[in-house]
């Protein structure tokens, strides 16, 4: 982008000898910045069109509750039982969804708790809400709901907990093969919930009931991720958390490789086995990021480029044309 016709600087530099030498006191050469930019723009534009035409982009359809109920009905039932028993991931999460737990700490500081419960989610309601709204025709579900609503908290937890355990022991988690026991109305509720999921109306009931537009699927996504199906689907696509997870894309696409360092920590101890991994990895990344920002001031680190002289390659022409003795 430039022709090498060096000239001496026209302006005599009036810097004091103690001041380091800077850009303006060197000989110059022609350099067309605007032409460089325009060529770069054309090249990047053509490359983009070429890659898009050749490789398109991935678009795996979202999981719907109907497709979940279709593909893994036993998982829907087990998830509903866990929501009622208060043992699902969302039910035991803590802030920002509820106060069931303190949340993670970073060096003993309860940042998660300080964030507050700003997106309140009652996990049992993820099941009971849609059931109540759609049970008008189903007398058995109506009766089961009435029985549930009339029972004490302890009674409800005992029923749902026992049913969740029994499901876990049944062959393939099949609700039809559960050993008999005192589960109260829970099997009727969870089966009724499976029916609601099958109809395809569950998304709407979870995201827009009470609001016409319903633009916030937080509750629906929490319910989905309480199940095992989404994770199984993701693992099958090499997207698990211990498989460099969300850095990857569905299909054979590059995804977000620039997240490699964040994802990396989840793969190694102590993080890979810690209960506080999320907070620790975040803390670690904040520290490293601060280090990157302040790199020019960190003794040692800022000298690495002098010790490992990659710059000899970058400026090889200059070092060749202007050996130390001839520099002005």
């Amino acid at each position: 982008m430039a022709t090498a016709t060096p000239t001496r600087p026209t302006r005599s530099s009036r810097r004091s000898p103690a001041r380091p030498r800077d850009a303006h006191s060197f000989p110059t050469r022609r350099y067309d910045l605007v032409k460089e930019f325009v060529i770069a723009l054309v090249v990047v534009g053509l490359l983009t069109v070429g890659l898009a035409a050749a490789f398109s982009s991935p678009d795996e359809k979202p999981i719907t509750f109907a497709s979940w109920a279709q593909a893994a009905p036993e998982d829907v039932v087990a998830t509903a039982a866990a929501e009622l028993a208060g043992t699902s991931a969302s039910a035991t999460y803590g802030p920002p969804y509820n106060s069931a737990a303190e949340g993670q700490k970073l060096l003993g500081v309860p940042l998660q708790k300080w964030g507050g419960v700003r997106h309140p989610v009652n996990s049992a309601d993820l099941v009971l809400g849609p059931l109540t709204a759609s049970s008008s025709g189903d007398l058995r579900v109506k009766a089961a709901l009435a029985r549930w609503n009339g029972a004490s908290d302890a009674r409800r937890t005992a029923w749902a907990g026992a049913y969740a355990d029994a499901l876990a022991k049944a062959p393939n988690g099949d609700p039809a093969k559960v050993a008999p026991g005192d589960y109260g109305p829970v099997p009727t509720l969870t089966n009724g919930f499976l029916d609601v999921a099958r109809t395809g109306g569950l998304e709407g009931q979870l995201t827009s009931s009470g609001t016409f537009y319903g633009g916030d699927p937080t509750r629906a996504l929490l319910l989905l991720s309480d199940g095992a199906y989404i994770e199984d689907t993701a693992r099958a696509q090499h997207l698990g958390g211990d498989q460099w997870g969300m850095m990857n894309e569905t299909g054979a696409y590059p995804g977000q490789p620039w997240m490699w360092l964040y994802t990396f920590w989840y793969q190694v101890p102590p993080f890979s086995t810690s209960d506080n991994a999320d907070a620790q990895v975040w803390g670690m990344m904040m520290l490293l990021t601060l280090g990157l920002v302040l790199l020019p001031f960190i003794p040692g680190l800022r000298s690495i480029p002098r010790w490992i002289p990659v710059h000899r390659l970058v400026w090889r022409q200059y070092y060749r044309d202007y050996p130390p003795g001839e520099r002005h």
Binding site: P58, T218, V281
Partner: peptide
Amino acid sequence: NFDSQWISTQAKDGLNAVGIGAWFNVLN
């Protein structure tokens, strides 16, 4: 799509763990 379902439900834990998730809701 599926990718955003998966990435958001995964990423929420990191952001929630440091309190950011309370204001910056990746599930929305």
